[in-house]
Structure formats: C-alpha cells, structure tokens
Design a protein around this nucleic acid. Structure first.
Lengths: 230, 230
DNA sequence: CGCGGCTTTGATGTTCATCAAGTAAAGTGG
DNA sequence: CCACTTTACTTGATGAACATCAAAGCCGCG
C-alpha cells in the first residue's frame, strides 16, 4: 500500500459525486487533508475490528467487502466499484469496522478523515442529506441482493452472479472472473465444489464457455431464464 | 387504521431519540404537523410500491418488514420494535417503498412528512448526522443478522430466532410467538414443515415447551449452543 | 523440483423441500 | 349457536438438492 498526496479535488471527476453541496472553502479544507492510497490485487484495505478513522471511497479498481463467520469461513457481503463507498456500513454508527475490505484488482482509494466529514456534516445539512442518500442506496442494494440470492437455488445463483459480473461490472459477455471459485461460493453461500459443478454444467449445456478465469456468456437468454426460474 | 392528532412532542419520551439536535422552533414545526396512526394486529402499514411520503417510526407495538419475492413467496427482512424506524430502507434514496410493513401486534406509528424532515435536515447538519447514525445502525443490524442466519443450518436458525424473541423482544424465557410458523419460515428461509419439525424436536429434547403460540425456553444454555454450533 | 493453493470430478451421505394426509383452531353465514 | 369453510399446525414418507470426503491434475513460486 502506497500513500500519495495529490491535490486536484477541484478538477476531480468524483467531485460531483461526493461534494455536491459543499462550499468552495470546505472543498479546500478537504483537499489539503485527504489522502489517496494504492493497493495491489489481494491487499487488505480494511481489517475487521480496526478503528474507523477514514471515510473511504473507491477511485479505481474493484474490492470485496467480507466478514469472517464463527466457523472460520468467510462470507462476502458485496463487491464495490469505482465511485462506491468502501466504508459503507457502520461508519457513522460504530467505532470499529465489523467487516473487512480487500482489493480484487489493483485499486486506489480516496480517504478523508472521519472528523473532517463529521465536522462538515454537522455544519452543512445539504451535504449530509446527499450523503445519507448515497449510503442508504448502497446498503439497500446489499439487502435487496441478499433477498434475491436467498430465494434462488444453486444453479440460479451461479447464473445470477455471472450476469452480475457481465452486466454490472464488466459490461461485456466475455470477462475474466475477478474472484476465485471459492469466493463465489463465499458470496452465494455454497461450497466450492458445487460452484464448480454448476459452472461445468452451464458449460456442458453450451450456455457459457470457460477458459480458466475467463468466462464467455454464449446464450444470455437462457442464462437469464435460469437465473429467474432458480 | 385510525389517525389521531396529539401534540405532546415536548413531553414525548421518544423526543430524545429522534429530536436530539433539533431546536425548539423546529420541534414546534414538527409537532403541529406530525400525525399518529393506530393499527390493529394484521394491518398493513406500508405496501410495497407505495410512494414514500412520511418518515415513520414505531411508538408502540411490533411490526415486520417484508418483501414479496418473484415466486409469490414472502420474505421477512426484519422485525421492528418501539422506537425503531419503520421506514428504514430507501426512504432517502428512493421514491417508492421496495418492501412492505405489517403490524404483528396492535401498533402506533408517529409520522412526519418527508419534506419536513428533509427541510430540517438540510438546515441542521447535527440533526442529519444523528439521523444517519441511527438509520445506519438499523440497516447494519439487518445485514449482520442476515449473515448470521445464513451460516447456520435449520436447527440452529430456529434456536437463533427463539433466542432473538426471548432476549431482544420479550426479555423473558416464556412468551407468545408473535408470528406464525409460516412467518418464521419466511424469515429464516425454510419451509413451514421443517420449522415445525425443528420446534417439535426441540420440544422432544426437553429444550423448550410449546403450548400453541406460547414458547417456554427450558434449557437456555443448550439452545445457545445449538444456535452457535449451527 | 516440490510444495501449497486453486481447480476439477466422482462417490456417498446428510439436510432439506415436496407431497400427502390428517388434526386442531378460527372465522363465516344461516 | 351450530354446521361449514378456511387457515394454521402437525407428522410421515419420499426424493431432490446440496455438503462432505477423497483423490487427482494444474499451475505458480520459492
């Protein structure tokens, strides 16, 4: 992990996302103190139990939010894309993170001290309101996805996650899976073996093609139907 | 459903919860326009798809938040107690509710127009900040509970929900289940038959006693162990 | 080269959903 | 208030979905 300190907030493409209702002087203030951090694929960005110090969002890359269950197994909560908040949950309500974040691809985060955010928030209601909207939208998404996956069976869950990567993340019918089979299993709540079996079945049925980590969706319609019909 | 219009916000025991950082004039403003609504057991408080108009919290009673899945089956998201926000998710980020709320016991809600809340929020950062904290704590709880339940098997899930009702809701080892067996199934993602079977098994093992809707936890330690060891 | 991690496939057993059928409880209309 | 319908609950039998165990191939890396 490497820390950079650039100060180009005013020209920042993310400004509109985060700073919608912030005054120029507030931007100045954030600008001088914010830090950017680079992570390599596999790096841990946040460790469960750590004190929450920064408000973090993802500038580039791809990360996973996850949690270690009682039995030692990890559970993946969601994936986050650029412009998403990495410190999604519990940042305002808790002192410590109750989940971890790791980079699935080389990533860059932009960090702002929580005190700074809270200080601006307490003075600027509009900013806080737009913040609450965005944080809520993200947690809503997580809950709705959980419910969605919950009502599907194995085969449908695999179809669902393939469509998710294809449509939401890579916007292409051919892509390299950014996660291992094990991580897919940790996300949808199944075992590695059965994830692999389902992928093989989809391949045998000519619905997808698999070359190592690369997936190509051949018959999207059928995949969609499988996803919906569980 | 019956609408009452009392104006005793200043003496309201819930004031500190919601109005922590609100000025006297803001309280006045809320006070004159807020409404209270009474619901009978079984009444629907919010219907999925309805426009979000009010900020709602529960004064007394017990409610469930739920969602109808694709296959027609309902999925219970969580239960809400007095002082909880009923309009938990999506109130700031969406135009319409993407879930429903129904009363499990006779309940009273306190409703404040969203414009009112947003108007105060945009002028009062501290208020918004305390609001964000509370809403986040609630959604965090939902996500963590989902993960918790997900890693358990049927028997452990039943143990978990019984302990939940006993400790979090009724604070007693003997209580009347506020939900049907079917609703328990909808919450933990199982079938009614297996919920009943598990309850019967717990009864046969002398861990709980069942008299219709009434549950008495006899061996709490064992129930705890079952819940933890899945 | 050999070790460990990721992947894959097969065999086996457990967990759970589904189907069926019956009892109890609770609401409905005459 | 009683027959009637409906809804909730309960138990058993069966099969499907899935986890677990075992074993082997495939890299990448020190």
């Amino acid at each position: 992990m490497e820390s950079i300190n650039t100060c180009n907030c005013e020209g920042c493409e993310l400004k509109s996302l985060f700073f919608e209702n912030v005054t120029t002087s507030e931007i100045e203030s954030i600008c001088t103190r914010k830090t950017e951090h680079e992570y390599s694929k596999g790096d841990i960005i946040i460790q469960e139990g750590e004190a929450i110090q920064d408000f973090i969002y993802l500038k580039t890359g791809l990360v996973k939010l996850y949690r270690s269950g009682n039995n030692g197994k990890e559970q993946i909560i969601c994936f986050a894309l650029p412009l998403d908040f990495v410190s999604l949950l519990s940042i305002f309500s808790e002192q410590k993170y109750n989940y971890s974040v790791a980079a699935l691809e080389d990533s860059v985060t932009c960090n702002i001290r929580m005190e700074e955010v809270k200080s601006i928030a307490s003075q600027n209601g509009k900013f806080t309101l737009s913040l609450i909207e965005k944080v809520n939208k993200a947690t809503d998404r997580i809950i709705l996805d959980f419910l969605e996956v919950k009502q599907k069976r194995l085969y449908g869950r695999i179809a669902y996650i393939l469509l998710y990567f294809s449509k939401k993340i890579y916007n292409s019918k051919s892509f390299d899976l950014p996660v291992s089979r094990k991580e897919i299993a940790e996300y949808i709540g199944m075992t590695v073996e059965n994830v692999i079996r389902s992928l093989s079945d989809l391949r045998k049925d000519g619905i997808i093609k698999i070359f190592g980590p690369n997936i190509e969706i051949v018959d999207e319609d059928r995949l969609l139907r499988i996803s919906e019909l569980s």
